[in-house]
């Protein structure tokens, strides 16, 4: 995973080396350069169009309602940070971020540990029954959460877990497990079993081998999975909406929803709330983009 960008860069270099520009024909070369400049400009324009709603959101979040009515599309006449102060106090922001981190962290620990424990034998032991277990996990990827949401609610109620962090942690972890098991298994299949065999020769038991050999081996995959999981839990609405009722336990996305709800909020109230709910993840994305792209493209070419 960590080698991904460098490999791409190396291949880019190799490509340039293998396709030397035809010498002599200067006009053709200039035309080619112009075309690639135009293509770059076009691509950046498309990107800008896609980003426009986000930029618009940032702009309007800093405008007062009267300023917005006068300048719906142009830049604000002055920046109004008061919107954010109001939104911040309407939301339960600090608490919700804390809750989200706690729930994400709990679910991540559960998914990473149980998922990698299961993936190890699934990758190394090819028996008929391990294939059945593997297929069982694959099947979970297609079940829409809406199918199980009501029985899940009843189950959590029977277990006395409604309106607890644990209920959301367990539900989010279980729903993310299929992807984790698949991801870890395909990662392990791509690395040789030599280290584990060496540990076996040294007389290490299964759990010691797992802890000292397999888990460190899975570190890059775990990082990618952790980021993907953060995205999922952070952005999920339905599970916290159904399982949580108290304001002081809600996740950030639920906080955005319950703050705005279906009130007739004006733009200057609405958009700062949305920005506050979105900003932390956008920052994470910019910093850890490589892992996010690796998580997104995990399913390609491993069939």
């Amino acid at each position: 995973m960590s080698g991904m960008t460098t490999t791409t860069a190396r291949r880019d270099q190799a490509q340039t080396a293998r396709f030397p520009a035809p010498d002599g024909n200067r006009a053709a070369r200039r035309r080619k350069l112009l075309r690639s400049r135009l293509s770059s400009a076009g691509l950046l324009l498309v990107t800008l169009v896609v980003l426009a709603p986000i930029l618009l959101m940032l702009k309007v979040s800093l405008q007062s309602d009267s300023d917005l009515a006068a300048n719906p599309l142009s830049l604000p006449s002055h920046l109004n940070f008061h919107n954010y102060v109001a939104a911040f106090s309407d939301m339960n922001y600090g608490r919700s971020v804390f809750n989200t981190v706690l729930i994400t962290g709990g679910a991540a620990v559960l998914v990473l540990l149980t998922g990698s424990l299961a993936a190890w034998p699934l990758a190394r032991l090819t028996r008929r029954w391990t294939k059945v277990v593997y297929q069982g996990f694959v099947a979970g990827l297609t079940v829409p959460v809406f199918v199980m949401i009501t029985p899940l609610y009843i189950l959590m109620r029977d277990l006395g877990l409604l309106d607890s962090y644990l209920s959301v942690i367990l539900a989010e972890a279980a729903i993310s497990l299929p992807f984790a098991v698949l991801f870890f298994t395909s990662f392990l299949r791509s690395v040789p079993a030599e280290l584990e065999e060496a540990a076996a020769i040294d007389g290490a038991g299964a759990l010691r081998t797992y802890w000292h050999v397999v888990l460190p081996l899975l570190r890059p995959a775990s990082a990618t999975l952790l980021i993907t999981l953060t995205l999922v839990v952070w952005n999920d609405l339905i599970i916290p909406l159904v399982l949580l009722t108290s304001d002081d336990k809600q996740t950030i996305t639920l906080d955005v929803y319950s703050t705005i709800g279906t009130h007739a909020y004006s733009a200057s109230q609405l958009l700062p709330t949305v920005v506050l709910g979105t900003a932390p993840l956008l920052v994470v994305f910019v910093v850890l983009q490589r892992h996010i792209v690796a998580g997104i493209t995990a399913g390609v070419g491993k069939s």
Binding site: V50, L51, P53, I54, L231, W234, N235, D236, L237, T253, V256, Y257, V274, G277, T278, L281, L282, V284, F285, Q289, I292, V293
Partner: peptide
């Protein structure tokens, strides 16, 4: 990719 990082709610 930026929009895909936002919650559906947002």
């Amino acid at each position: 990719l930026m929009p895909a990082m936002m919650a559906l709610v947002a």
